[in-house]
Design a protein around this nucleic acid. Sequence first.
DNA 1: CGGTGTGAAGCCTTTCACAGCA
DNA 2: TGCTGTGAAAGGCTTCACACCG
Lengths: 237, 237
Amino acid sequence: MADRPAGRRIPEATVTRLPLYYRALLECADRGTETVSSERLAELAGMNAAKVRKDLSYLGSYGTRGVGYEVEFLLGRISGELGLTQDWPVVIVGVGNLGQALANYHGFGARGFRVEALVDADPAKVGEQVGELAVESLDDLAEVVAERGIRIAIIATPAPAAQEVAGLLVAAGVASILNFAPTVVSVPDGVSLRKVDLATELQILSFYQAEQGNWSGRKGSKRAPGSSSPVIPEVAS
Amino acid sequence: MADRPAGRRIPEATVTRLPLYYRALLECADRGTETVSSERLAELAGMNAAKVRKDLSYLGSYGTRGVGYEVEFLLGRISGELGLTQDWPVVIVGVGNLGQALANYHGFGARGFRVEALVDADPAKVGEQVGELAVESLDDLAEVVAERGIRIAIIATPAPAAQEVAGLLVAAGVASILNFAPTVVSVPDGVSLRKVDLATELQILSFYQAEQGNWSGRKGSKRAPGSSSPVIPEVAS
DNA sequence: CGGTGTGAAGCCTTTCACAGCA
DNA sequence: TGCTGTGAAAGGCTTCACACCG
């Protein structure tokens, strides 16, 4: 949050890139670098310098001409904007292959997210231990979400269950959902939804693969989208 | 492939949506529906009708005015375009939590991709059985890729190994890479690269979450963003 | 000088709206 | 009449290029 230049809205495309800058800046900090130029930052984030400057300008004018950006300061600025100054408790719904892998993925904790609960509809799975957590019942979802103040959820169920689970999550007070189930899920206004679809990503690659016979200089797929969204995503060079 | 209207290039944004239409059409086919209107298809794919028509028009004019699109025909058209008429053998490099989950994920097989090999740099993991496959050594990567005609790879290694693995893959002849490692990877021109970054996705959600105090009608992010796909257009290990 | 900050231009994507065909 | 196909308009994103400042 903090005091971004009044009335300035950060474009969606920029928002999806802030985490990349954040990661790049963390690397700089680890190495003890104190300032970075937009060019260097672009290199670390797989971007180009003009885009970096434009993006950062939405946060305010925090660079020093002739020098660059202060790493620590910018880190604070971005983590504030991304809401990473606090730890977000997260619930994962669906404890299959993917759900378990996500539960054991330590990249979340390192980035301000704490997997606080695992939930599954299958009674056979309830009670099972996964890492530090015991799987809880879908019936207790509302309670779990409310008690632990959870606002962010990950859906890792099979496709047919996803929409129903999303409904339960929203009813329980979750405001942001990351959906891994390969199906369309809709949520009411005011709830954020992003999706990650593994098979879809491969199919997109397959398109360019198939196209390669008559290749004619198209850039692979810098992703960005999105898809990333994500996909965006985002380099082929 | 096939005879798309000569000289017509399919925009990147459209390409990322073709898999969604494909999935929606498969649902229609399952239900025995023979034709769909752009409106219905939009609903099933979480899109709007105008966009669907525009997107499909890049494949050629295959709808019937006053009626809609023939499901079977369009399925054939899209799967041809996406190169799904053949099965693509895929190699997964990095058999940690995520790599294993991906190896066991049956959504790939259902969509024209066959996980044909698992590779890891850790000698302790080599030989280990994961599902139907035995883990092979990174040292044998080039051989594995060449012998099985692999063109598509998934990187599910820790971040520090990703760039090196990408290099090995490209050298071995892989032309499309899906990167789950949370780091920037660069590849030469002509090689397609997409990325899925789990922590990044959560951070984007976190942004909108943090923003909610001063919410003012921005759509959370129904992905497109991207996402990535997006659904994101996304995971890491 | 070197590197930021930013108008302006250009490109891509989405949306609109309606002509045209089954 | 109903729904596609598509020009045209609108909006957003990226790139350019340079004024400005430390």
